[in-house]
Amino acid sequence: MERYEIRLSGSGGQGVILASIILADAAIEQGLNAIQTQSYGPEARGGASKAEVIICRDEISYPKIRKANILLSLTQKAYDKYIGSLDRDGLLIVDEGIELSGNDPIKAYRLPILKNAIEKFDTGMVANIISIGAIYELIGEDVIHKDIMIRSISERVPPPTVQKNIEAFEEGIRLIRGYYE
């Protein structure tokens, strides 16, 4: 397996930090090395929010991402800010509401993440978990087992919302699978 440097970006309150924690948690459960870091502004809601996960078999020294090979952006502002840091061979996942600049890698996925969160799950709160589903589908089951991902989600979301979040995770997987169909 290669080294995954995943950057998740959006606005405060969208749960990108939690999403990054779930990913890192699952990677460690899988027996891999992972480091999760974040940067954030003074706002608890709104403002820019960025989280990073590095997943690798080897020990990880420098804990930050140099060149992301997966970038998730849920807001235009986050996309504009971080698209330049995505490797040319990397993978881009953005919400469909984002206008692409044209500087994107070949593999770019514009997905109805925020729309489906509200239409299918009645809450924008699951947008982060739909995003994890999409990222997971790109990383692949040979890196992290699906049941480990689901367990990690179940342990980190509020107990009454576990089922809804697992479905949101599946929704993210479906969005990627159906993308080029």
């Binding site: 890192a24 090395n33 480091i35 999760q36 804990p63």
Partner: peptide, 9 residues
């Protein structure tokens, strides 16, 4: 802050 806020195994 780097060490305090990062998560790893």
């Amino acid at each position: 802050e780097t060490v305090g806020h990062m998560r790893e195994k």
